[in-house]
């Protein structure tokens, strides 16, 4: 089964991203949205962990990046930006959604 994992909290506020990465298996997708988009930025303390998650595809929600003033150049490599329609597609394409709140 492929899972869409969602993370909506900053990795510096809560350990939801860390928890999620421990459970995201190869072939799954992780969408960072709301304050979770801070986890998608390059050069921060969690960037290595994100880069090390092999076989996992990372996404960040565009509207939430924009709201927080995070331009796409500030994102870590390999993070794909999606909008809400993209969020919906990810939910459809994967077999289930697992929310790490």
């Amino acid at each position: 089964m492929s899972t869409l994992h969602t993370v909506n909290k900053s990795p510096f506020e809560k350990n939801s991203l860390a928890d999620c990465l421990g459970y995201a298996k190869e072939g799954s997708a992780v969408l960072m949205y709301e304050d979770g988009v801070y986890g998608a930025m390059k050069g921060n303390a969690v960037a290595e962990k994100v880069a090390a998650a092999s076989g996992v595809k990372f996404y960040a929600l565009g509207p939430d990046l924009k709201a927080r003033g995070i331009s796409e150049e500030k994102l870590a490599e390999g993070i794909e930006v999606v909008d809400y329609a993209g969020f919906v597609n990810l939910a459809v394409e994967n077999d289930k959604v697992s929310a790490w709140v």
Binding site: M1, T3, G22, Y23, K25, K96, V97, S98, A99, W100, V101
Partner: peptide, 12 residues
């Protein structure tokens, strides 16, 4: 992680 992967639906 294997158990979670096998589930149909997750309530958080």
């Amino acid at each position: 992680a294997d158990v979670l992967d096998d589930q149909d639906i997750v309530y958080s």
